[in-house]
């Protein structure tokens, strides 16, 4: 016989919409903590390229002070923080969603009175607390202790950095969401994930700062929303952008965020309808 009191059901008193999503986030957080060792390795995985890039750029900067307006100190900082930002939304957000679609567990989501997109956002938040936390540890240890990266250029740029980071985080989750939705129509999630990761690495400015890219590629990257995930926050961090220029960048990020949000919500409703027609 269970005693009434400490085990009172959770439905008592929890009816406001906001807390539904928060409790989802909390549950995912618990799951993520259980998988912390895997997360540790997965974040460590992404930092392999930080090391490679460090050495490659070090060789490039021997004998010159700046490349495309970036000094060696700034380039080092860029590389470390770019990967740190990327690790905030790891592989787990997308694969969890795709797995649910593939196995058919997504039907549970379909019969719940929740916004599917917001649900995934809440889940991503749960994962990010752990993934982001571990990423921050890597960034700080490797960045500050080993590679001596710079601090933000000014206080204003630090604030702008954080703002852009948040918008960028939401942008990335929405992009991953949209790509994962494709699993409703195809089956191979891994291929989709690989493609999305690869394209994102290039067009967000992770593998190489946008300023270094050839003109045509730079243009494409500047127009798409992916730059808001890594490049824009870093431009603020390094003090490369201020004043009206900064406003413009944040504005662009925000516009893209809204656009993606709208598309995402249209897309998942469409996807659910397709599944219903096919009979699941």
């Amino acid at each position: 016989m269970t005693a009434i009191g400490s085990n009172t059901p959770a439905w008592r008193g929890r009816t406001t919409p906001g807390s539904k999503y928060l409790s989802l986030a909390r549950t995912t957080l618990q799951q993520a903590i259980a998988y912390r060792i895997t997360t540790f390795f997965n974040v460590g995985l992404t930092f392999i390229w930080v090391i490679i890039l460090y050495y490659l750029w070090r060789a490039a900067y021997s004998g010159r002070a700046s490349i495309a307006g970036l000094s060696w100190d700034q380039m080092r900082t860029y590389v470390v923080i770019a990967y740190g930002i990327n690790a905030l939304v790891g592989w787990r957000t997308g694969t969890a969603m795709m797995a649910a679609i593939r196995t058919g567990d997504v039907v549970f989501e379909m019969v719940r009175p929740l916004n599917y997109c917001t649900t995934q956002l809440a889940r991503a938040l749960g994962f990010t607390v752990v993934e982001g936390g571990i990423s921050m540890i890597f960034t700080l240890v490797i960045g500050l202790v080993f590679l001596h990266i710079q601090a933000p250029a000014t206080v204003a740029s630090a604030l702008l950095f954080v703002l852009a980071l948040i918008i960028g985080f939401l942008t990335k989750v929405l992009v991953v969401f949209l790509v994962s939705l494709l699993t409703f129509w195809t089956l191979n999630g891994m291929g989709l994930m690989w493609s999305q990761q690869a394209i994102m690495q290039i067009l967000s400015g992770t593998i190489v700062p946008l300023a270094l890219m050839p003109g045509w590629l730079q243009f494409i990257a500047k127009v798409l929303p992916l730059r808001g995930i890594v490049s824009t926050p870093l431009e603020f961090y390094l003090g490369k952008s201020g004043g009206w220029d900064a406003v413009g960048l944040i504005g662009l990020q925000a516009i893209w965020l809204v656009a993606l949000w709208i598309v995402a919500n249209l897309a998942w409703k469409r996807a659910f309808r397709v599944v219903e027609i096919q009979g699941g």
Partner: peptide
């Protein structure tokens, strides 16, 4: 379809 997607992704 899966083959092509995986190949392209890789």
């Amino acid at each position: 379809a899966d083959f092509w997607i995986a190949a392209v992704g890789a």
